[in-house]
Design a protein around this nucleic acid. Structure first.
Lengths: 249, 249
DNA sequence: GGGTTTGCAATTGTCTGACAATTAAATGTC
DNA sequence: GACATTTAATTGTCAGACAATTGCAAACCC
């Protein structure tokens, strides 16, 4: 069981990779304790700092957790839905914001993906899902609501819709679409949008879902998508008016 | 600009969190250079080891990269689609394998999500997407193909279908569903499955997509989902036959 | 014997200082 | 000006030390 760390990549990265693949391949199982840092030093023949940097890399990915004390150490972490959610949302947010994704592309993706949960949601929605959606609609109708709170409520509404599908894997996967992109979309469109219209569409979605009418739900969600896209185009058009195009060469 | 690191959480985690939120909030922009380690030591009033552990945490999340040398340092990394893909697939794989997700739940999620790209794919599929799909179908039909290669080809086929939607955000989001779950599904069903039947369904999907018939494509994908589920149930049933249920108290 | 306290040992967290490796820029040489 | 050398800045790695935490067992007390 000797590890030869070959290349000129950083040692801590290689060691982290070694352990990471052991976890992914199931050689290390959940809650299993990794060797102590001092032991890893000997095994990989590196200093403790290097081992620690490797372990911190793993901890940053929620692959391990550490405890101090006599029976402490680094343990393989069970990746919880909550951690995975957060990670997925963060990654999605960064990906969108760092890669000049057009609003149309993001909007299209977001609604296409959300649509996928509707047949299941129509079949399985429970009273509490409907109640959550109606509660958010009610909140959205309150006068004097700040844009920020309205946006939060919007996200919560859609999350309830997704959760109504009763499939945690779908909820996790769609978190990246709904929670990461909805705020971005709201940020762009909030100046233009007609809350009454959005609330109406939300109500129609809730009604259709209550009636277990998947087709109507999909159609209405499509209308919401179209309206969002239209808003964005208005904002863009107005921008072009105001900001003169820079005349480079 | 003084940072007070309060609690008894690890310092390196707090520092990493500080920098991470600066990146997410846009206070640090892509390719911007972070202060040198020695400078961060002074700023946060900690030792260099601690700073380094923090930076390694960020590097593990692809948020930063480092270069050695005179003008080196840690730089805010542009999160590429490739990195995001890999991260998403790894997280999805771990989430499924560590949380006792039933096969039915995973299968349902996987096909529901893939379905969402079909209307767009039918509209936009290009000759190269179709060619890629047909190439994989051809591969799958070759005799003597190992299960592993067949599985790889299966994944590639579905990825081509997803990419045909021409939306990189959708491709990214669906990577978690297709690339993470398909291998798991194949692992379970490969003993039972009839390759000819799968190839037929793949062919029908490619044909329907070529004809830009979204409805037919969705129907056929649904049939593939149903067949996969049926296979899994057969395997489970056989398992129950062979393995006597353990009689614990 | 039973419960409590104390001390010990293992382990991670942090600090300090040193040197190696790398790299771009400055400097020197022809 | 072109090329070689030196220098300085920066990260990567190592070694050793001490602090903080924590489970456990031994000692102790009643």
């Amino acid at each position: 069981m000797k590890y030869q760390l070959d290349q000129d990549r950083e040692l801590s990265a290689q060691i982290a990779e070694e352990i990471r693949s052991a976890i992914i391949n199931g050689k290390l199982i959940v809650n299993e304790r990794l060797p102590a840092e001092s032991e890893l030093c000997e095994r990989f023949n590196v200093s403790r700092s290097t081992v620690r940097e490797a372990l911190k890399r793993l901890a940053a990915q929620n692959l391990t957790r550490t405890q101090r004390g006599a029976t402490g150490g680094a343990f393989v972490n069970r990746l919880s839905y909550e951690d995975a959610y957060r990670q997925h949302i963060t990654t999605s947010t960064l990906l969108i914001s760092m890669n000049e994704v057009s609003f149309e592309t993001a909007c299209e993706a977001r609604f296409a993906l959300e649509r996928s949960c509707i047949p299941l949601a129509a079949e399985r929605r429970q009273p509490d899902h409907l109640a959550a959606m109606r509660a958010e609609i009610h909140r959205q109708a309150q006068p004097g609501l700040s844009d920020e709170v309205f946006c939060d409520s919007d996200v919560t509404f859609h999350r309830a819709l997704v959760d109504a599908a009763g499939n945690p894997v779908i909820s996790y996967q769609l978190a990246g679409a709904v929670e990461a992109m909805q705020p971005l979309m709201n940020m762009i469109t909030f100046t233009e949008r007609d809350r009454a219209k959005i609330i109406l569409l939300h109500t129609q979605i809730a009604d259709a879902l209550e009636a277990r009418d998947a087709f109507k739900t999909e159609t209405t969600l499509g209308a919401l998508a179209a309206y969002t896209l239209e808003l964005a185009r208005n904002v863009t058009a107005r921008h072009v008016e105001k900001v003169a195009p820079p005349e480079k060469t």
